[in-house]
Computed example of a mutant assay.
Amino acid sequence: MSDSSFVPIPFQLRQNIVPLHEEKFMLDSMLDGWAEQQASRGLERKTAATRAKLIRRFQEFTETYPWEWTSSDLEAFSVHLLSGRRPLAKSTLRAYQTMIRMFCDYLVDDRYGWRRACSDRFGTSPRQICHDWNTVVHLVEYEGRPQRRALSYDELERFFEAADERVLRIQRAGKKGALAALRDSLIFKTTYAFGLRRAEVAGLDVPDLRSNPSAPAFGTCGAVYVRWGKGSRGSGPKRRTVLALAEYSWAVEGLAQWVTSDREHYGAAASGPLWPTERNTRVSLRYLDQRFAEIRDGIGLPPELSLHALRHTYVTNLIEWGYAERFVQDQVGHAYASTTAIYTSVGDDFKTRVVAQSLASIYGNTDDHEFR
């Protein structure tokens, strides 16, 4: 008969080891055990490593160990993160608090034996320090900065004109870098034309360009196979296929020209990265951010706009052009329609057209009325 009062010894403590620093050894063992628990759930090792890094940061801030932590420690840490020159966004703070809550949940679960082990060694045991009264509550769908938005048609045109002008300017000056500038311009156009995230566009390889039997005019660029889509809950990258649309034929033509002609000047492998560098490596996310900011600042766009604004613009434009919301959701890889709705910020022209259609359905042709 099994003893219901039996408490297991954590696997990480079963070896006959005498640590020089018992507190540090215990913390390391806890984090190792937590990482194994997450790996058993199918989460990425990178996810576990990110969470462990935050736990160590919290431990360094408190200068105490998990079996000594209190709710006041969490509150002091949260206030610290919300203060200073670069305070965290509330959504980021909530994510940090959630990680600490999950770690505490793991420690206080008697199936793992950490409370008994800490009580035997240190005379006290871990407890849950996160609760509804000291953590950020998710009250609204979107908590990002309100300055971040989609680009207007005029801003989008100016941005791409500036990107193309940069290529011509380097060529006229007889300097190196024209090919890289052309590549950068095409990266931004591809990001917009397929509604991609930074990591998605940077991670593309040539074989990720696919044909679409329903759109033979696009050739091998009729679709993009995204292998580095944003995962959820540490599940790893999600994959999807994004179809090329007729409204973006201009961008698809440039992409096809790059693949069949311009890219070969880098000497990159035919099946390698779609956007190689002179060193035959893949362009970095930081590089893309810097180039986007350079063009944005050069034409006087607000500094709050990031490369991700092109994805917002893609979603907004597709809704304005009458594409079904479910189709848009599938194109951008959102698990929920509410997320796609957050990205949408339709322009005045679209709103005016909707109002005109509504009035026409009531009054007939509005050209004979004052509703124009």
Score class of each variant (00 low, 15 high):
362 I>G: 03
281 T>G: 05
327 F>G: 00
248 Y>I: 04
262 D>A: 15
340 T>I: 02
314 Y>I: 00
352 T>I: 10
301 L>Y: 06
293 A>N: 13
316 T>G: 06
316 T>Q: 07
239 R>P: 00
335 A>Q: 01
337 A>K: 03
242 V>M: 00
270 A>S: 15
345 S>D: 14
334 H>R: 01
330 D>F: 03
272 G>S: 05
368 D>Y: 07
348 D>G: 11
341 A>E: 13
274 L>N: 09
355 V>P: 01
353 R>Y: 02
266 Y>K: 14
273 P>S: 10
270 A>R: 15
335 A>V: 08
347 G>H: 11
349 D>M: 04
246 A>M: 15
307 L>G: 11
284 S>H: 04
242 V>N: 01
252 V>G: 04
311 R>D: 04
315 V>R: 00
281 T>Y: 06
255 L>N: 08
253 E>L: 14
363 Y>T: 09
272 G>H: 06
237 P>C: 02
285 L>P: 01
257 Q>L: 14
239 R>Q: 14
334 H>N: 02
310 L>A: 10
257 Q>F: 12
242 V>K: 00
325 E>C: 01
301 L>A: 09
303 P>T: 09
259 V>K: 01
369 H>T: 15
367 D>L: 06
278 E>R: 15
277 T>Y: 05
285 L>C: 13
248 Y>R: 11
271 S>P: 02
305 L>D: 03
326 R>A: 08
246 A>I: 12
282 R>A: 04
280 N>M: 13
359 L>I: 11
334 H>D: 03
315 V>N: 02
258 W>M: 10
328 V>M: 03
274 L>C: 11
297 D>P: 00
257 Q>H: 11
291 R>L: 03
361 S>G: 14
267 G>P: 12
284 S>Y: 04
273 P>W: 12
259 V>Y: 08
266 Y>V: 05
308 H>F: 09
252 V>F: 04
249 S>Q: 15
298 G>R: 07
322 G>Y: 05
